[in-house]
């Protein structure tokens, strides 16, 4: 069976949930091989073994942290040339898409981004035009390079003892041009990661700047917190939490929009959520057209009451 390469998405060895999802997809259609780039493998080993990586290709060059994107694409290309995989799977985040873009050019291969599912023959499903259409597509040239969105499949644990293979990569000068001169890792909030969370509770302009009720409901549900661009532009919540066309696209099991009107650019980031709930004091707000459950009311009273009731039920 041919190998399917999975680019491991991690922060200094902390493997993100999407990688487990990609390994799950890879295992359906081939031999799942993880490609681990950068430092911190010792902390990642266990997570990769738990989600069924049969092999791990390990590249530990310092250039991977010193320069942006390019060395990752170069390392991945060299592993791909050596292994001739059936496909390469990469997480669909900004960096993943850029790695995929360069990799596709290097391998002379077709590329599909933002898949929400991958079927036999690497036929992908994508959700396009703000979620109004579902598209089936396939790479027709070279090695399919596919970026897959978080929460596309449920990760299935399978314990393995991966074969580890160190890979030496010589980087051409063109891969070492965009130099990282400063890096500030984002502070952990203790809440789940926005793009991976099963539940997201978002606040908009209707919070009036107080995200307290939004965070209270999020914590009652064990959810991540998101924000509309209006809330971010007002300085009420950091940009990293923006949901929408120019923020994160999320597809959680449950999305709760609080004090958010439902502009098309916001919907573009959450339309594939399985269940949508909105709390808004304006019954005419466009967001209500897409809800499974909606409350016309003031979020400042509705959210705390819901949070308390949830806490009571949980006991």
């Amino acid at each position: 069976m041919a190998e399917v390469l999975v680019h491991v998405d991690h922060v200094d060895g902390a493997v993100r949930k999407t990688t487990a999802e990609l390994l799950t997809i890879a295992r359906r259609y081939g031999e799942p091989s993880a490609v681990y780039l950068g430092k911190g493998y010792d902390s990642a080993r266990e997570a990769l073994a738990r989600f069924g990586a049969a092999k791990v290709y390990l590249v530990e060059a310092p250039e991977l942290d010193q320069y942006l994107v390019s060395p990752h694409a170069e390392a991945l290309a060299q592993v791909a040339r050596a292994t001739q995989p059936a496909a390469v799977l990469i997480a669909s985040n900004p960096e993943g898409r850029e790695i995929a873009a360069r990799l596709a050019v290097k391998l002379d291969s077709g590329l599909i981004t933002d898949a929400v599912d991958v079927a036999e023959g690497f036929v992908t499903t994508q959700s396009v035009f703000a979620g109004n259409y579902t598209v089936q597509a396939r790479v027709t040239k070279g090695t399919p390079v596919i970026t897959v969105k978080a929460n596309s499949v449920a990760p299935e644990p399978v314990q393995t003892t991966p074969v580890e293979e160190r890979f030496d990569v010589a980087f051409p000068d063109t891969a070492l041009q965009a130099r990282v001169v400063e890096r500030a890792n984002r502070e952990r909030t203790g809440r789940p990661d926005l793009s991976e969370a099963a539940i997201v509770v978002s606040g908009g302009r209707g919070t009036g700047g107080d995200f307290g009720p939004v965070e209270q409901l999020a914590d009652a549900l064990g959810a991540a917190v998101g924000a509309s661009r209006a809330a971010v532009d007002s300085g009420w919540y950091p940009h990293a939490y923006q949901v929408g066309q120019t923020g994160k696209t999320v597809s959680p099991q449950l999305y709760v929009a609080c004090g958010i009107s439902g502009a098309i650019q916001h919907k573009a980031g959450m339309q594939t959520s399985k269940t949508v709930v909105a709390v808004n004091k304006d019954a005419e707000a466009p967001i209500f057209a897409m809800v499974d459950f909606g409350v016309v009311g003031d979020l400042r009273s509705v959210l705390p009451q819901a949070a308390e009731e949830i806490a009571r039920r949980k006991g």
């Binding site: 077709g110 979620g131 209500f288 897409m290 809800v291 459950f293 909606g294 409350v295």
Partner: peptide, 20 residues
Amino acid sequence: WSAVESFTERPARGQGEVVT
């Protein structure tokens, strides 16, 4: 290098229950 094999319009999300 890639081809769209088919496309389907996503059924509009039916509006669920909205309470005041």
